[in-house]
Design a protein around this nucleic acid. Structure first.
Length: 572
RNA sequence: GGGCCUGUAGCUCAAUUGGUUAGAGCAGAGCGCUCAUAACGCUUUGGUUGGGGGUUCGAGUCCCUCCGGGCCUACCA
């Protein structure tokens, strides 16, 4: 039995996330966590909300709420949506937790001791009307290069020229529109990542099996221009982790907080402490996952994230861990994803474009989304959600191939033998061939799951479902029954066992439906099959079952059109 | 501008990393079955692998070039 630590990128707090966010980290992480648990491994699956930063403060202001209250509410909303999608987190924490405050300050203290923190004085734009410093992109003005009047302080979207906020003509706050701006001197802490560059490079170079997407982004940052740059890890904000050196005050840093990207990954660790603290368990219980000096040497740590998160997970966070000089667990494998687009464009939280998690669950059960999203995960390039593809995929795969198989087997049995596994008859070459095929496909399925090749795993699972229909078609128990009822009974007995096997194998993808099927088979044996032939005799003759309701109803053309129209514009 | 990724059948994707005649699913066509959610099975149509050039006995795969799509470019997260 192995021990697997799994984290998915922690979703930002500023609003309800769309399906692109879901498929880019949490959903695949959940698939992997569920699979590894089913295979008997010890799994710790952690996630949290990422609650700090300017956008969180602005979202709270827009909602007319104090930021702490806003974040608490949004955390509850996201936690509930996670449950709705059956994300099997062992703990869903908050980056604003006291545990994360303490740990973030601890790391900063250790980095300072190691000489990896530098104090830098810099000039930033302050808005009197907004009462805050403005990040570059929150300043708008006219581009000095092309004259575009909505250029941002970091870059002009029209001519793509990189800008400094002070380059803008007639700069104004993007928040309030105020032109009452002032350049102020302010002091910040920088993490001297450049000092750790060679260690990071050696570490990255040693990861030959990581997705190209992951390593190429890391190398780009290591080698771009003058190489890996030091990074500011503090901000002038109210809401965040106060800057401290361990438990000590940090002279000159009063009133400042750590940068959200410094404290967010540390929450992966703090979430584990939140998890044990919640039950009053000792620190040793979470440290055995995170401290290689306290039992984590044999842990395999796997992270899931969208490509936009890769630099922070391959460089900044490892630099924090390496630089601390303490034996924290480094990530072993980083699975990164491209983007899921929506019907010809991007999903957008700010523009309200696409399908959001709450809306998705309102119109269909979680399994529909899980199956389609996972079987179309943007692994090799950006992928696209269209209602036509979604309808076709769900109807064909879930309703026709899997659902209808269950339906035809159980209903045939009920009409000929009653709601009980029939006895009599023996298996022959057809059954042996089926077992051989399933054994081969199961091995492939397992290989793909181990390698986190999600679309391939989904395709293999589907092929396993198809094999049942092929078998049933060629065995034709409805014909056999007329001349040799016992032979038909043997076919049906095996087919009912196939349903149970499908519940076991499909559970990581579609946990609710798997549960329904298992319940209908009046069984609770989720043992992962070591031997297909043996697994297909689990339900013995005489075992009672029930014919389940339609497991997956089809999406009608009318529904498809209705949803397409409903989600074409922006959400309220 | 620079860097990275990507382009394979109408659609969504494969192709053991340079090795037979480029494969699946969906959609389309034909046949079969009648247990089943008008479901299932079998057969089948469909590709100058974005264009052009090169290396090689051999290129979807490597190199050059052009075209298209996307991402990143460090103070959004």
């Amino acid at each position: 039995m192995a021990r697997v630590l799994i984290t998915s990128a922690i979703p930002y707090i500023n609003g309800i996330k769309h399906l692109g966010n879901l498929v880019g980290s949490q959903l695949p992480a959940d698939l992997y966590a569920r699979y590894m648990r089913q295979r008997g491994h010890e799994v710790l699956f952690l996630c949290a909300t990422d609650e700090h930063g300017t956008p969180a403060e602005l979202a709270a202001a827009k909602a007319g709420k104090p930021v702490a209250e806003f974040c608490a509410e949004m955390h509850a909303v996201q936690a509930k949506l996670g449950e709705g999608f059956r994300l099997s987190f062992d703990h869903f924490g908050r980056s604003s937790s006291p545990q994360n405050h303490a740990l973030t300050q601890h790391f900063a203290g250790k980095l300072a001791e190691a000489g990896l923190i530098e104090e830098v004085s810099e000039r930033q734009v302050y808005s009197h009307a907004d009462g805050r410093f403005l990040p570059d992109r929150y300043i708008e003005g006219t581009c000095p290069n092309c004259g575009y009047d909505k250029a941002r302080g970091d870059q002009c979207e029209n001519c793509t020229k990189q800008l400094d906020p002070t380059d803008l003509i007639e700069p104004r706050s993007a928040i309030s529109g105020s032109t009452d701006l002032e350049v102020r001197e302010t002091k910040h802490l920088y993490l001297r990542q450049s000092q750790i560059r060679d260690r990071l490079r050696d570490w990255i170079d040693g990861q030959s099996d990581w997705p190209i997407l992951t390593t190429s982004i890391a190398r780009k940052w290591l080698d771009d221009g003058d190489g890996l740059r030091d990074r500011g890890i503090t901000r002038d904000l109210d809401w965040g982790v106060p800057v401290k050196k361990g438990t000590q005050d940090w002279p000159g840093m009063e009133g400042k907080v750590f940068y959200v990207w410094f404290d967010a990954p540390i929450e992966y660790i703090a979430s584990a402490k939140e998890w044990t603290d919640a039950d009053g368990r000792p620190d040793a219980d979470w440290e055995r996952w995170w401290r290689t000096d306290k039992g984590a040497e044999d842990v395999r740590y796997v992270q899931f994230m969208g490509k936009d998160n890769v630099p922070f997970h391959t460089l900044s966070f490892p630099a924090t861990i390496m630089g601390s000089g303490e034996p924290w667990k480094l990530v072993d494998y980083i699975k990164s994803f491209n983007y899921l687009n929506y019907d010809g464009g991007q999903f957008s939280t700010s523009q309200g474009r696409g399908v959001f998690q709450d809306q998705a669950l309102e119109i269909l059960p979680a399994d529909y989304w899980r199956w389609w999203l996972l079987s179309h995960a943007p692994e090799s390039s950006d992928s696209e959600f269209t209602w036509e593809n979604f309808q076709a995929g769900v109807n064909k795969d879930l309703a026709d191939v899997l659902g209808n198989f269950v339906s035809r087997v159980t209903k045939f049995c009920r009409s000929k033998f009653g709601e009980v596994v029939p006895e009599g008859g023996t298996t022959g070459p057809a059954e042996e061939a089926l077992v051989a095929e399933l054994t081969r496909r199961l091995a492939a399925y397992q290989d793909h799951m181990e390698a986190i090749e999600i679309r391939k795993a989904a395709a293999e699972l589907r092929a396993i479902w198809v094999a049942g229909n092929e078998y049933l078609q060629s065995a034709a128990p409805w014909t056999l029954f007329k001349t040799d009822p016992e032979a038909a009974a043997a076919v049906v007995r095996l087919s009912l066992n196939l349903i149970r096997l499908y519940a076991v194998l499909s559970r990581p993808f579609i946990p609710d439906a798997a549960q329904e099927l298992m319940r209908a088979m009046n069984c609770d044996d989720w043992t992962w099959p070591e031997d297909i032939g043996a697994a297909l005799t689990t339900l013995p003759a005489g075992h009672a079952f029930t014919v389940p309701d339609v497991t997956f109803r089809k999406i009608t053309d009318d529904e498809r059109e209705e949803w397409k129209a409903r989600f074409s514009g922006t959400r309220d």
